[in-house]
């Protein structure tokens, strides 16, 4: 296993070197978490065909060019990320948790995954997800494209979400039809909540009509303007608002017990969620995320979704005009 700090720095330095080569052209790459370290070379567990299939989808969607896919595929298996970097990339572990496990690993000489499990930083389900992603041809291709500076992590993730949903490649004819918007919001909501609030296990959603936000809930609503407007609202119960804010800012709960900070943390969560939804729905279309507004919306939003995560309740206010299917 490589030394975490050094390898992370090396990866960041490598990213910068590549970026410097692109800067002159002002390419549109954005920075985002997950500059992984290059782990030891290992044999790929998935076929090149799988990578090419996903690659063809990325080309068709206009995410990257065929030449860029070919270049990424040619990088080969040596560009594999370490397990811990995949865990961070997927939002299942924090960098701090990785450092703790790496320190334990130096003493215990045990596999990273086993120690992360023992420490409670990764669930068995999470470890399986990390292992699957690490060996996935899709992940490898996406990772190579990100490393080459041809795509962003969020862009690849969004494309993979659409790819997985359609199963056979091309997205459905009308990506905004029916429940897609709601499903996209819910899907991204769960992912982001897990990542930022460090909630392990599943985020369960249920239907309950006519719910009103509980006393003391922190509610926020936000909209994305564009040809297909998206609006949604969230209400967090006080305990979850506190936990979310504290985890996002890496503070102890008592340090973050500031109403203004909590309100801001919840609003920022909604803002990030809107960004993910925007990228998932229409990465190439011009659209604009409006500033998050506190409180529940005045419009007739559908209040029908409840979400339970780690025993902490959230009232998912929902998107308008789509009913409670």
């Amino acid at each position: 296993m490589t030394n975490g700090t050094v390898s992370k720095d090396a990866a960041v330095a490598a990213d910068m070197h590549r970026e410097a080569e692109h800067e002159a052209h002002c390419d549109l790459r954005m920075e985002q978490g997950g500059s992984g370290d290059a782990g030891p070379a290992e044999k790929p567990t998935a076929t090149a065909d799988q990578a090419q299939f996903f690659g063809a989808y990325l080309v068709e969607q206009g995410v990257v060019s065929q030449q860029q896919v070919d270049e990424a595929v040619a990088l080969g298996p040596g560009d594999t990320r370490s397990l811990e970097d995949v865990a961070v990339y997927l939002g299942l572990m924090t960098e701090r948790q990785v450092r703790i496990v790496r320190a334990q690993q130096r003493r215990a000489k045990a596999p990273f995954g086993a120690l992360a499990l023992r420490a409670g930083f990764l669930s068995e389900e999470g470890l399986a997800e990390v292992n699957a992603s690490q060996g996935s041809a899709h992940f490898r291709l996406g990772d190579a494209l990100i490393r080459l500076g041809y795509a962003t992590a969020d862009g690849i993730e969004a494309a993979h979400t659409r790819f997985s949903r359609t199963g056979t490649g091309p997205a459905s004819a009308d990506p905004f039809a029916g429940e897609v918007t709601y499903e996209t919001v819910r899907e991204q909501f769960g992912k982001l909540l897990k990542r930022l609030a460090r909630i392990e296990g599943s985020v369960k959603a249920g239907r309950r009509d006519g719910l009103e936000p509980p006393p003391g809930a922190h509610c926020v609503h936000i909209s994305i303007d564009g040809s297909v407007p998206v609006r949604f609202g969230l209400c967090f119960e006080p305990a979850l608002s506190l936990h979310l804010t504290a985890t996002m800012l890496e503070l102890d709960d008592d340090e973050s017990d500031d109403p203004e900070l909590i309100e801001s943390g919840v609003a920022e969560f909604a803002n990030m969620l809107a960004g993910r939804v925007q990228r998932a729905l229409r990465p190439k279309e011009r659209s604009c995320i409006k500033l998050p507004k506190p409180g529940t919306p005045k419009e007739p939003y559908v209040r029908c979704r409840t979400v339970t995560a780690a025993g902490l309740g959230i009232l998912y206010v929902g998107v308008p005009d789509q009913g409670c299917s």
């Binding site: 990213d15 954005m30 920075e31 978490g33 962003t152 969020d154 920022e268 990030m272 960004g275 604009c288």
Partner: peptide, 29 residues
């Protein structure tokens, strides 16, 4: 930013924005 609108980024390029960071921002980067 949490947005990725290409037109916005292109405008940022013209203004010589040095780097863009998606939220949540990677602290090490």
């Amino acid at each position: 930013t949490s947005t990725c609108d290409q037109t916005t980024v292109e405008r940022g390029c013209r203004l010589a924005v040095t780097a863009w960071f998606y939220k949540p921002v990677d602290a090490a980067l």
